[in-house]
Design a protein around this nucleic acid. Structure first.
Length: 804
RNA sequence: GCCGAAGUGGCGGAAUGGCAGACGCAGCAGACUCAAAAUCUGCCGUGAGCAAUCACGUACGGGUUCAAGUCCCGUCUUCGGCACCA
């Protein structure tokens, strides 16, 4: 036996698999298909990090396992290449983003290959490739032509550091997703995608994707559907009305004031008498960042002199205030305030000395608002009704009067889709003095991103492309007169909103993907990635897929069947790893020292897939010893004798693999039904198997064959090499062994004898012994008379419990 | 504040309501060695005991059950997400 030289072995096989295209997925096959995908990522200059290893190792294990199980497996990889990290790096160094990307991609590809990931590299895609973004632009055209993309002036999140507009998804918590700097609100020209109109379809996806309830919750929370009513409050001596959204139209009798957001158009009304005071407040509010605005919960505001609203039900006069606790981008930017039953309104009323009128019975409102349930009081025809009935009756009343109607509101906003950056997909849009906004013709795609040396973002917020007058000035595709191009580019998330589809048909230059291939591959069976993408990428993906479904371009409404989110790898103290804190570990160092097989097993062994875990090399010794043992199996092969004990552990190990690596049962469609992804326990069972074999000192050839196949998904290199040495040939042609249920049980078992739940003895007994037999053994073992036993609880093969 | 997840040895972590601590690391003792590494053998939750054994033990307080880490009620702690959403 040669020494276990992981370096030599891993180099040999990594090269072999790429050259042989061992993991090529067949388009169309007799075999059942299985599409497993881990999120692709931006190829930055740093190379892979531990998070990639934690994310890709499990899907690689599953891909290899499913191939052995007879599936036609699609396990592709690619690059989310348009993005700020690359562009920022390019700006810093002056190098072309495209060159930076190419170099980084090569680095990542070689590192992933070194880890032994079994990607089908023939399907590699990159979002910044012309033949890819051609189709991203094509989808944008479909959106535009279907009225789902529009240009408007709006107040949007803007990152002063990155000098670009951001979506709400990109600025969660008021911080830029990229640079983590504070985001400000700015009035700008914005290309919006009408994502809000897809809210309900996206909510259906939330229900249809098989994932953890907590993840579904955060998506539901982000979409933020709430049912209520829109009510128009007339303004005294005016034709105008003040529109509000409320979930509690039943409390309209308790309205004692109204509040509008600082950005609300009513603040520009010519009826307003204290313009200076109001403008001063507006100026103050606009200076605050969204973080400051929400952190400071102290209520401030100014009453609008000269503007009085009228309660449409009671006709009572109501004062109107401006305050920054009302947001312009939710609902109508105005509220009816019911201080008796809303905490924020209560606080505001107390501060400004506004009356508080209780309309729901049940709570004490002397100290705080009462937000609980109860019947209505002081509410005209709603009196004595419960909340639910009162809401329906009030909506009915308002509809009859013509001053309100039922309405659904969403927290999720339309998607601001343009960025003032160079490194992104150009919009296939032209502005013409005659024709207005004109989309390019599909045959003119791709609209290629022009080369330039000056890709630095502009202080004024104009895109770098605007400086390229040769490119900007063009002819209107409609009338042929001089026109200009849109110079903003699409956001980072554009290319990733449909990429899983392109893997099905990555080289197609006629269609974004052929219908045949879409029909064959269908949904992504398993999609894994970071939990942070659940309220970002997953929502965008859901939106685009639903849209493509609606226009008949994809066969499935929901793109992903199942989603799993991996936990983070933190440093040994539980802190996030980063280059700046100096606690980052380079996975390649670990591979060099221990080998990819050991590293993969170690990563899977130290923690659960979904949980965060603290990185440590403590314990990798155990994995090393295990693989050394596996290597020495080649010298322990002996005859064809069978042993019951070996059969028992082997068949139990196969069973364990089948039940805990991946649950492919199509009837299991909810998170609760799955019992898989427990890679650490599978490895523990393999160690137990090895311990037994080493104790006995021998293994049969067929047992070794089975064991190598079981271990191969976890440690592909060493098993491929051993297989070649012992059996000759390539292990990828093997089938996953099947277990025989009858061999997973033993004929006799040791079961505990308990007396009132306390263990008193252990008896050795037939696994299928009758109760009488077990009882006889049990009383003998603990030395009592069978007459003393009042009650017996006997679970065959498990336990016997006596009450004496 | 709201929502969610989790609390088990020195450590990472196992346990369809059925012998808590599988498997691994570390540690201790021993074998091999001039020595070290590697490897092998044994021990390894806490307390008492020479020992067999006994008692206690899964964040805390109750409860259900023949039997609870697991189910129910309450409390505490930690982590994550959202946050003036009308």
């Amino acid at each position: 036996m040669q020494e276990y030289d992981f370096k030599k072995i891993e180099e040999k096989w990594a090269k072999y698999w790429v050259e042989k295209k061992s993991y090529k997925a067949e388009d169309f096959s007799e075999k059942p298909k299985f599409y497993v995908l881990s999120e692709f990522f931006g190829p930055n200059g740093k190379g892979i990090h531990l998070g990639h290893v934690k994310c890709f190792t499990p899907t690689d294990i599953i891909a290899r396992y499913m191939r052995f199980k007879g599936y036609n497996v699609l396990y592709p990889a690619g690059w989310d290449a348009f993005g700020l990290p690359t562009e920022n790096y390019a700006i810093k160094t002056g190098e072309q983003p495209i060159a930076v990307t190419e170099r980084n991609v090569q680095k990542f590809k070689s590192q992933l290959t070194r880890m032994g990931y079994s990607f089908d590299w023939d399907r590699e895609i990159g979002t910044s490739d012309e033949d890819y973004y051609k189709w991203t632009q094509w989808i944008f055209l479909q959106l535009y032509n279907n009225g789902l993309a529009y240009k408007a002036s709006g107040e949007v999140n803007f990152c002063p550091q990155c000098k670009t507009v951001l979506s709400n998804e990109d600025s969660q918590g008021g911080l830029c997703d990229r640079c983590h700097g504070e985001v400000v609100r700015r009035q700008r020209d914005v290309w919006y995608l009408k994502m809000q109109s897809y809210s309900d379809k996206m909510l259906e996806d939330v229900e249809n994707i098989d994932m953890k309830e907590s993840l579904k919750d955060s998506q539901r929370n982000w979409i933020g559907r709430s049912v209520g009513a829109e009510i128009v409050f007339p303004i005294k001596d005016s034709e105008e009305g003040l529109k509000v959204f409320t979930t509690r139209p039943d409390t309209i009798y308790g309205v004692t004031f109204m509040v509008i957001a600082p950005e609300h158009p009513l603040t520009k009304s010519d009826k307003l008498k204290n313009i200076d005071e109001v403008n001063a407040y507006k100026a103050e509010a606009s200076k605050k960042s969204s973080i400051e605005r929400s952190a400071n919960k102290d209520k401030t505001g100014v009453r609008l002199d000269g503007i009085t609203a009228l309660n449409p039900i009671t006709n009572k006069e109501i004062p109107v205030y401006i305050s920054d606790y009302v947001m312009m981008d939710y609902g109508t930017g105005a509220i009816m305030a019911v201080p008796a039953h809303d905490d924020r309104d209560y606080e505001f009323a107390k501060k400004f000395g506004i009356p508080i009128v209780q309309v729901i019975e049940g709570g004490d409102i002397s100290e705080s608002a009462y937000t609980g349930d109860g019947v209505h009081i002081n509410s005209g025809n709603l009196n004595n009704l419960g909340v639910k009935e009162a809401i329906s009756l009030m909506i009915e009343t308002l509809e009859k009067m013509g001053c309100g109607h039922e309405m659904v509101n969403y927290k999720m906003q339309d998607w601001p889709f343009n960025r003032q950056r160079y490194w992104g997909e150009p919009f296939p849009i032209v502005f013409c003095d005659e024709c207005g906004i004109v989309p390019l013709d599909e045959k003119d795609l791709p609209l290629v991103l022009p080369k330039t040396d000056d890709f630095i973002p502009n202080e004024t917020g104009a895109s770098p492309l605007s400086k390229l007058s040769d490119w900007v000035n063009c002819k209107c595709p409609k009338c042929g007169k001089p026109a200009v191009r849109e110079t903003d580019t699409m956001p980072n998330w554009a290319g990733s909103s449909w990429y899983w589809l392109r893997y099905l048909d990555p080289k197609n230059d006629k269609e974004f993907v052929s219908q045949d291939k879409l029909n064959y591959w269908g949904q992504v069976d398993l999609y894994t990635g970071g939990v942070e993408h659940v309220t970002r990428h997953m929502l965008y993906a859901s939106f685009w897929n639903n849209f493509l479904y609606d226009i008949g371009k994809v066969p499935n409404k929901t793109a992903f069947k199942r989603r799993m989110c991996n936990g983070l790898v933190l440093d040994s103290e539980g802190k996030k790893m980063s280059k700046s804190s100096g606690n980052a570990i380079d996975p390649i160092d670990v591979v060099s020292e221990y080998g990819a097989d050991t590293f993969r097993l170690h990563m899977m062994f130290i923690g659960e897939y979904e949980k965060n875990n603290n990185w440590t090399l403590k314990g990798i010794t155990g994995i090393k010893r295990f693989l050394n043992g596996v290597w020495s199996l080649q010298d322990m092969v002996k005859g064809d004798e069978v042993s019951k004990e070996h059969e028992f552990i082997l068949h139990n190990l196969i069973k364990r693999c089948d039940t805990t690596i991946y649950d492919a049962n199509p009837e299991h469609t909810s998170y609760e039904q799955h019992n898989d992804f427990k890679f650490n326990t599978v490895i523990a069972n393999m160690m137990t198997f090895m311990n037994k074999i080493r104790e006995d000192g021998w293994i049969t050839k067929e047992e070794l064959r089975s064991f190598l196949v079981l271990l191969n998904p976890f440690a592909p290199f060493i098993t491929a090499e051993l297989y070649e040495i012992v059996f000759g040939g390539d292990i990828v042609n093997e089938k996953f062994p099947e277990f025989d249920e009858s061999k997973t049980v033993t004929s006799t078992v040791e079961i505990p004898v308990q007396v009132k739940g306390k263990r008193k003895a252990v008896i050795n007994i037939s696994a299928v012994a009758e109760e009488s037999e077990a009882l006889a053994e049990a009383v003998k073992a603990i030395g009592i008379s069978a007459d003393d036993v009042k009650k017996v609880i006997y679970k065959q093969g498990k336990i016997i419990n006596l009450i004496v």
